[in-house]
């Protein structure tokens, strides 16, 4: 039996995004299927973060079309978009310093059934249990990253937008995060990962989008990755 194409989770067409007068995204088209893990690669300022923020509605203004599970979101307020089942982990983690670890964990609203329960989360991230009464930003960078991941797994969101989750972390933590990505993919989460380079998710990602100056410069599937390394390095300027 031939493998059926995955059901569509997210479709972006003709997306333009602006911050005040600055025109950041110039017509983005991309489709992500259920259970896929795709990365958005590119240099700083290429527009990768803006694509994530546009999906959740956190840019100044946006036009075009973004559908999540078939629902058009371009005119929805941010909190309603989140309720379609999106979990967002921002750049620099976004841990609240005036909230305890557990309050940080409990903050995001449950948007769908099937999220992890608190015991399951503490089972997965034992450090957080130990430090649950500490203030959020007292944690180490690695622990904060785990907290930022854990809190969106609690909500039942099944489309995860993850922005540079490995930035500034020790290699051993990066390794743990890679294992976590593998587990999440196995559990059927759909993941869009913003990364500086393709190494972190090379063996996990189904596809890599290369973003350059607010447009999609290229799309590389997992099969093409090894053949495209030279081309990718050129895009990413490494």
């Amino acid at each position: 039996m031939p493998e059926a194409a995955p059901k569509e989770m997210l479709r972006i067409s003709g997306l333009h995004a602006f911050y005040g007068e600055s025109h950041i995204l110039h017509g983005i088209d991309l489709v992500v299927g259920e259970g896929e893990l795709v990365t958005l690669l590119g240099r700083n300022g290429a527009g990768r973060t803006t694509i994530l923020k546009s999906i959740i509605g956190l840019v100044g203004s946006r036009s075009g079309s973004i559908t999540v599970h078939g629902t058009e979101t371009i005119n929805l307020p941010t909190h309603k978009i989140a309720h379609l089942g999106i979990g967002y982990c921002p750049e620099e983690r976004g841990i609240f310093s005036s909230l305890t670890v557990e309050e940080n964990l409990m903050l995001p609203v449950v948007v769908r059934k099937g999220g992890l329960s608190l015991p399951e989360i503490y089972d997965m991230f034992p450090n957080l249990l130990e430090r649950r009464t500490s203030m959020g930003t007292r944690l180490s960078g690695g622990e904060q990253q785990m907290l930022a991941m854990a809190r969106i797994l609690r909500t039942g969101a099944n489309l995860l937008l993850l922005d540079e989750i490995t930035e500034g972390l020790a290699p051993v933590i990066v390794q743990t995060l890679r294992q976590l990505m593998g587990q999440l993919k196995e559990r059927g989460f759909t993941i869009i990962l913003v990364e500086q380079n393709f190494h972190f998710a090379a063996d996990l990602a189904d596809r890599h989008y290369v973003i350059d100056r607010g447009t999609i410069a290229d799309m590389i599937t997992r099969d093409q990755l090894s053949a495209s390394t030279g081309k990718l390095n050129q895009y990413l300027g490494v």
Binding site: G57, L58, P77, T78, H79, L107
Partner: peptide, 10 residues
């Protein structure tokens, strides 16, 4: 902004 992204009607 982030609180909005967590589904809360800010």
């Amino acid at each position: 902004e982030l609180v909005k992204a967590f589904g809360i009607n800010v």
